[in-house]
Design a binder for these strands. Structure first.
Lengths: 231, 231
DNA sequence: TATTTACTAGACGATATAGTCCATAAATGT
DNA sequence: ACATTTATGGACTATATCGTCTAGTAAATA
């Protein structure tokens, strides 16, 4: 990311706090005003550091941008593992919680801006953009698919293409929220609204692919429970 | 959009072709390189026009951008109306075609770039961004909801919140395609892949909410037909 | 024909930004 | 003590873009 020091030598050591401050400031400014509209002087000032210090740490602006991206991707973490529970009800409740966390996170302005920024820079930094995808929604959908596969293997569901089903479930959770927020239409959904969306999508999936076909009533009871919990 | 001429006066009239060329060139350049990286001189050169002509038509860069947006929104049109058919099969086939057109359009690089550009400029041009949403996916989902409402009224479906169902169906069609393409991950899906995605999402919805519960077999036959057609 | 407006080509001023240079001070290892 | 490296702040260069201005030409109306 920054410059290398040949191991340990004499001389004043770098101040890691300054580097952090630079990365923090650059991150904020890049998100707020975009890359072209952010000047190196602004970055330096926001980090309470001289411009030369910025250039000591990063050869140029693209390098700074790449470092900011890399750090953000590294500190990006998904909600705790999506685990299946002992019985179906517990599993579905885990699933709903997972979905709510995802949708809530994707509605945050910072996440929205980061996603847009990455898309803007995908041409110049294809590797980083791909890593961003893999570490974010790619991994989420992978876990979702594993989850659905597990329920299928245990006989609760009869889903053939779990990868596709997982992606569509994920997308249904989000709906057009991201698109709307990106265009400044409407406000981020409330926790209740998120819960409703997430659970409705799960309900649709369960009604469609649950193996519990002839016991529709039981299934309905479960879904009703799902609807109640946590709202 | 441009400047006004007080009705009819003496003097050389403006060349509408030049104005068109300016808007075309600006549109292309804005999409390709972004707004800040596009200079007025580039726009002029691409339109084979002198820079002063550009400034005669538009007071400044933001005005040009707004004009480009407005024109694009105006010439933006959705696929022909989504009409319900005589029986359910025909209706579902219409629905599938509609979905395929939508997903196909949203996978085009130009559309992707336009959407990103709009999002970038939503802060400066909130009205245009909102119009863009309304004329695009907003209207699509509205039509979808009407469609589902109609099938529900006719007793084929039992969907309560047709607005939410429509949005989730739309989102499921697209999946993470847009997100991936924006990040340069993967390639646009083939027509076959699109058809598969669209029809799988419809199948899920029908299995979940069709009123034809005790005749699961008949329902299955219909869905099988749906899967065959057009692939 | 006279007037008015559109268009061209280039020069121009104002402004802003990327990135460098330099002299000096501070912090560290030998 | 001394060499070495980081950090500072300011001056500095080079470049680029916005938007204006000018002078001349073309095309329309009255």
């Amino acid at each position: 990311m920054s410059e290398k020091r040949k191991q340990r030598g004499p001389g004043r050591p770098r101040d890691p706090a300054k580097l952090e401050a630079i990365l923090d400031g650059a991150y904020t400014l890049f998100l707020r005003h975009g890359v072209p509209a952010t000047t190196m002087e602004q970055v330096a000032e926001r980090a309470s550091v001289s411009k030369m210090t910025v250039y000591k740490n990063f050869p140029d602006k693209p390098a700074l941008l790449a470092a900011v991206f890399e750090r953000k991707i590294k500190t990006m973490h998904l909600p705790e593992l999506l685990a299946v529970g002992e019985d179906l009800d517990v599993s579905l409740e885990h699933l709903a919680k997972f979905g709510e966390i995802i949708v809530s996170a994707c509605s945050e302005p910072e996440v929205l801006r980061m996603s847009r920024l990455m898309a803007q820079c995908a041409d110049e930094h294809p590797r980083l953009a791909a890593t961003f995808y893999t570490a974010g929604r790619g991994e989420s959908v992978r876990r979702l698919a594993t989850f659905l596969k597990n329920l299928t293997d245990r006989g609760f569901l009869s889903i053939d293409d779990t990868k596709l089903a997982a992606e569509q479930l994920f997308a249904a959770w989000l709906g057009l929220i991201e698109h709307r927020l990106n265009l400044g239409v409407g406000a981020p959904p409330s926790a209740d609204a998120i819960a409703k969306r997430v659970r409705y999508a799960i309900e649709t999936m369960m009604r469609a692919w649950s193996t519990d076909t002839n016991a529709r009533g039981a299934s309905k009871a479960r879904l009703k429970r799902l609807r109640r919990v946590g709202v």
